[in-house]
Design a protein around this nucleic acid. Structure first.
Lengths: 208, 208
DNA sequence: CCGTTCGGAGTACGAGTGTTCACTGACTTG
DNA sequence: CAAGTCAGTGAACACTCGTACTCCGAACGG
């Protein structure tokens, strides 16, 4: 047992690492990752430029870390929302509400994801795509366990899951553009869109 | 009537302007607009940095010009595709095919749009949003003239139009990520998604 | 034909960039 | 408690960047 339980050193390292991530997220509110300077980040974090290399190789690597931080903690959430009881209308409303709440709580994180999903930094794009694919699979799995999905093929479930996930991404983007005052309207339209998709889902096997 | 019918000067000016746009589009294949340097563009275009200012105030202004170039010429196309006869299945397949063809023909243009739709340059974001809104309105208008849209409210038509447009944007992004070899699969899934939306549309008034 | 317009060239400046290097001093380990 | 590890420092490197000048010469209008 050492004198310092967890290691003062590791703790401090994680602290400055987080300071770098936070500073970067702040700066990324008004620019995109490919124009984000290493020095710019360290200056905002209160560290010298050389210290950056102790934590990340690139600004690209920092971007990938930001992706994990934002999307990594969301995986449990989806399954939880979809697993709750209630008719589809209720669950749909709840899903949209959950998204609106999360986006409202940490806009910068979601702005970053929306911006870099198709941004100029390859590794970051790949990291986001991988996370979204996982979301689509999770949604497909949750849908597959419902009675309403009897007779659906694996592939169609994935298609539907991807459809829902893409709509969630679009909704977050729109929420960010609209700002707090436009949130209600965006939520209204998003609900209607999802309802239309759900209706299509209910009649999919009739006309597929 | 002057000695030179169109004006040699204006022609040359337009020529270098186009050279700047083309060079920028090339460079934007692997980075985003906010990291694109003025000098970088002029170097690739074979012009001195100062010449840039004769055509654009900013790289942002150049970006807006690129948006117009890419999206401005597409407005007639949508109405044309939607106006053609045939059942909804046929029209749907044709729409997807038209998109795949356009994206395949000029990938760089569409990559630029996908990248800057949520990118770090405000004016460009605004320009793209304005164009997409116009698209949504055009689609809504076209849909409203169909017999299948009887009883639909103006607002719901716009919602549906936006839904279609957003799906088109998603499809273009996915096509770009997949590359030529993955095109067939992407087109398959995109068609299925649109079919599901169309089914939802057919039953919208039953359960709305 | 002559004066004007103007697209573009050339030069120069200050500021900011990513990266390397030797170095320091607090924490950690045996 | 001594030896070693290592997060962070500070100075220096060789760039690129946007922008402000002046200037040239071909195309233009009267």
């Amino acid at each position: 047992m050492s004198h310092t339980p967890v290691g003062v050193r590791r703790t401090q390292k994680l602290r400055t690492r987080q300071a770098l991530l936070d500073a970067a997220l702040d700066l990324l509110e008004h620019q995109s990752l490919s124009s984000l300077g290493l020095r710019e980040v360290t200056r905002a974090a209160g560290v010298t430029p050389t210290a950056f290399y102790r934590h990340f190789e690139d600004t690209a690597a920092l971007g990938v870390a930001l992706v994990e931080e934002t999307l990594g903690s969301l995986h449990g959430l989806i399954a939880a929302v979809l697993a709750e009881t209630g008719d589809s209308e209720e669950r749909l409303d709840r899903s949209v509400a959950v998204i609106a709440r999360h986006v409202g709580a940490q806009p910068a994180h979601f702005r970053f994801i929306a911006r870099e999903q198709h941004g100029g930094v390859g590794p970051v794009r790949a990291a986001i795509a991988a996370q979204l694919r996982r979301f689509a699979e999770e949604v497909a799995c949750a849908l597959g366990q419902e009675p309403g999905s009897a007779g659906w093929s694996e592939e169609d479930l994935l298609m539907l899951g991807g459809l829902y996930v893409d709509h969630m991404v679009i909704t977050t983007s729109t929420l960010l553009e609209a700002g707090p005052e436009g949130e209600a309207e965006v939520v209204r339209v998003a609900r209607r869109r999802l309802r239309l998709v759900t209706i299509g889902r209910a009649h999919w096997l009739d006309e597929g």
